[in-house]
């Protein structure tokens, strides 16, 4: 489904991704964990095509097609989706109108008829139920004045509406209360299918109790430094990142400090 090979990317000439490899097959859910600032959001934005990031080396293939030369909107219309760690507020852009336009942009690209408003209303009602979201949010501007958790829920609603083949969820669990976490995870599981794939970025293994990953990766210093199954997440939760970083020969000031503290 997605094949990332030796990906290097910079932002403002600072290298962030430094030779990242990742392959996700249809039907798989992969989780990525890793310290703050290690490049997890960068990875998802580079794959989604954010213009601020420059790919200096490597390839990204989606369903066998090199996507690095494509504009972000083309990638989205191919069936890729990213749920933002920090969803953007769009003042004055009505949520429902926005979703209607988004789905029609996709349908148009796929040679389907645009969905008329009446049909969309019914469709949206169903998707709202999916993420247990009140229709009241639809008459508001996109994310404007939404609480942190509401924004995340709105991301999943957008995913449900657009029904992507490959979705990246960047810390969608952060900021969600316990009930919301379950609802969002249920939503994700319902969208998941054998011909689809997902990349879930998280700091907490709790999410992985709900969304069962097939593979867990550790991203540090711009690379995947360890790959395992769900037990890896449990171990990280218990023991932190020091041991994986050590294994990979990565030292950071923070870990040095931690070590010093431990020996005192």
């Amino acid at each position: 489904m997605i094949k990332i090979t030796n990906l290097h990317a910079t932002v403002n000439d600072t290298p962030i991704l430094k030779g990242l490899n990742l392959t996700i097959n249809p039907g798989e859910i992969h989780a990525i964990m890793g310290p703050n600032g290690s490049g997890k959001s960068t990875l998802s934005k580079v794959v989604a095509g954010h213009p601020a990031y420059e790919v200096t080396e490597g390839t990204v293939e989606f369903q066998g097609q090199n996507i690095l030369d494509m504009e972000p909107d083309e990638r989205a219309r191919l069936g890729m989706f990213m749920a933002f760690q920090y969803p953007v507020e769009l003042p004055g852009v009505n949520n429902k109108g926005f979703l209607h336009m988004a789905i029609n942009a996709k349908r148009k690209a796929q040679g389907q008829d645009e969905m008329p408003m009446e049909a969309f209303d019914a469709f949206l009602t169903e998707k709202l139920a999916f993420v247990d979201m009140d229709a009241e949010y639809m008459v508001r501007s996109v994310n404007e004045g939404f609480s942190g958790g509401e924004k995340k829920r709105n991301e999943i609603l957008q995913m449900a509406v657009l029904d992507p083949t490959f979705a990246m969820l960047d810390e969608t669990d952060s900021g969600l209360d316990i009930d919301a976490l379950r609802i969002v995870a249920d939503g994700v599981n319902k969208i998941m299918a054998p011909d689809k794939a997902m990349l879930v970025i998280t700091h907490y293994q709790r999410l992985l109790d709900y969304i069962k990953p097939d593979v867990v990766h550790v991203l540090a210093d711009g690379r995947i430094i360890k790959t395992g199954d769900k037990s890896l997440a449990l171990k990280l939760e218990k023991e932190g990142y020091d041991w994986v970083l050590d294994e990979a020969g990565i030292t950071t000031d923070a870990t040095d400090d931690a070590k010093t503290l431990a020996t005192v």
């Binding site: 953007v88 003042p91 942009a105």
Partner: peptide
């Protein structure tokens, strides 16, 4: 904001129009 809309599949022109409309709306 432009990237957010693009990541939802909106062509550049549409995104631009939507954001300018949003700016105008109030």
């Amino acid at each position: 904001e432009m990237f957010y809309l693009a990541s939802r599949g909106m062509p550049l022109e549409t995104a631009r129009c939507l954001l300018t409309y949003g700016f105008a709306e109030d």
